[in-house]
Write a protein that binds this DNA or RNA. Sequence first.
DNA 1: ACCGCCGGGTGCC
DNA 2: ACCGCCGGGTGCC
Length: 868
Amino acid sequence: GERNYSCFSSSDFYSSLGLEDFLSVGDISGTEEDTDSAILYGTLRGSVVGLRYYTGIVNNNEMVALQRDPNNPYDKNAVRVNNVNGDQVGHIKKELAAALAGIMDSKLAVVEGVVPYGAKNVFTMPVQMSFWGREENREAVLDQLKRHGFKLSPPLKVGSESRFGSKWISGRAGPSYSAPVHAAVQLTTEQLKSEFDKLFEDLKEDDKTCEMEGAETVGTLLLPHQKQALAWMVSRENSNDLPPFWEERSDFYYNILTNFAEKKRPENIRGGILADDMGLVIILIQSLNFCLCRMCVHVSYWFIIWFILICGKYYTLFCYAGKYSDDGSRATLIVCPLSVLSNWMDQFEQHIHQDFNVNIYVYYGSDRSKDPSVLSEQDIVLTTYNILATDYGIRGGSPLHKVKWLRIVLDEGHTIRNPNAQQTKAVLNLEGQRRWVLTGTPIQNSVKDLWSLISFLKMKPFTDREWWHRTIQRPVTTGTPGGLGRLQSLIRSITLRRTKTSKVKGKPVLELPERKVLIQHVTLTEEERQVYQSVKEEGKAAISRFFSEGTVLAHYADILGVLLRLRQLCCHPHLCVNTSSSFSYLSVSADNKTPEELRETLVKKMKLVLSSGSDEECAVCLESLTVPVITRCAHVFCKPCIFEVIRSEQPNAKCPLCRNKLRVEHLVECPPEEEIDSSNGKKSDQEWISSSKVNALMHALIELRRDSPNAKCLVVSQFTTFLSLIENPLKESGFAFTRLDGSMAQKKRVEAIQCFQSSQAGSPTVMLLSLKAGGVGLNLTAASRVFLMDPAWNPAAEDQCFDRCHRLGQKHDVVITKFIVKDSVEENMMKIQNKKRKLAAGAFATKKPSASEVNQTKINEIKALIDL
DNA sequence: ACCGCCGGGTGCC
DNA sequence: ACCGCCGGGTGCC
């Protein structure tokens, strides 16, 4: 989970202020993406005609999909009616289709159908339609219908959602007039985990405790929970259970969510989600080779089991040896983020016995084979999401997509949470029956995140987003009774999850040392205070002006800029690049600037964004910015992402973050590296001075060295330039230190980590760490102390950072010190963080406050941050 | 479709 | 009869 907590266009920051609705973060392509905030306008009864021309059949109360059919030679207004399987059932009667066509084409509303009496119709059948859309489109929709002589009925009882008396449904469901619901508050990592764990609350302990039988030889080498995991995985790959929500009914298979039925048995889900808390599955690595050999003797005719340790996480993979799967496939494909690719390679190298004759191919780099048969002859093919996505587009097709895989494993599977990302599409189009997802956080922000994973697992009917949305996502987000229950049973049936507090056979799975968080207040010197105060007053004046003008949101990036400067000044005066105390750059009005001035202003802003934290996220692809460009409204995106937005929304493209007009010719690219780095260069010329915060840190470090000379610590900041500044006093005081930040090449990172983790005398005792460097997997357990130099917007980001040393393998209690400047924006950030932690409890799947409440909260937060 | 609709055949009682 | 009525042909979009 890459999180983002830096300034400006950071989507996390928006959500941390509860602004994401207003700014439509993540809602960039119209109705389809925005089905969450849709409300039900009403329902309408219509008829489906032409049944006898099609093979698709439907049951009573079955959900149907309405699909525009603009190329129909008989009627350009045609609307097809398909059953859950996608087979056409008929058409909407033409008079009604004429009314629907406009509404559907302009995406004013989403129209969903349920067939109340679907069975036994020969020529026509009724259909109950629900119209969903944004509040502001309601009138337009009602109007269009009226013009064709139709009128919506209030949504009293509709469709199959309300009818099936199954165990998943408690009481009545169905459309309601509920307000749009989003997760209003950003959860911290811990809260997310605990919200996710609530899904498992009623899971009986013994549900998954059956250990694998017939593997006694393995048994002596495995701990109970490992045996449990092994048994679960084996059973998942071989089980004949029906997928969730399917029942066998007198030689039909029946889906109780959609009421769809068919003769063909829905395919088993051969795989699942391994969402074990990081580092929970423990095994003695030393015995691994031995373990493999033992198994080779005893079970090799059947399969070999590989235990693979990745950054403290253990996963079990299976690979059929000798006898491959029934369809002749042999190779297991492992897809992972680039940052963990080397981990996998190292682990294979270290732990797979040479005698074992395992073929591993790393499909990465320019010399990767274009020949699919080379890949299919391997036992394991390793690749990254990016390679997969890049290859997917090439002419002639990607070799990865031509192989029928024995097994596909997604490491850090939440990488594909964005359904529109190229990576996701590339992953979803892979071939292979057995599918596994490894991730610590299957749900990162909302239930939405799950769709890609569920779809990857080929779970019928959720592979189609419409059915996922109608049967799970909407019921959960609107709080429909039974909705959460469905999600629970769905996730439980495919997920293995044990947490720090889980027990197997009554014994806790893991005991971690304690973790303490201390807040140390820092008082600025007279001089520092003066600078801070003057910048603050100036910023405050500008922001109050925005308030009085009512342009707070239009100037959002500027407000973040003011706050960034204040945060920087809390750390060190030299962090503020443009210390000229003028905020003239605050208003980017095109009118009174020459094009060149405008460009310069935008470049300045973009530099500010890029230097504000470490890697920035693009609000379109949710990945870190590759080729950053800035819009005239001062929001930063990847160049290809924003081009795609403009292309697809022609001719009236709007900024995904603020809905201002976008034009390609107004986009400004980031100037070459040196320009950005010039500020760093300048800094080294500047005479080095200390700051109150640096003094506080050095005092603590020296004290620590005196009291426990062997203790190692992390010094964490969001500002890499701050880390550079800290290097000076560290050298002066004779500390051996190393450094890890986002800009370092993979090889250097590994070196830095190994060096720091080493227990050799003279190895570094301090690591300078940028807050979001490295993936979740980063293991820095050598450190037992953490000094957090500056608070993050998102408390989750801090927690994740702390988890890098407070994790499996940590032998000592972990003490975390947060330096917070008294009477500053930092204190205010802490207050908001605390409020959010409280607010977030139970925020998952519950309704959020009204729009006006949210609005008020967000305004209060800005005010609180700058003491207005 | 055991309908509706169309259009041709038909035409006092 | 430029009607009504009858009954056969016919049938999504």
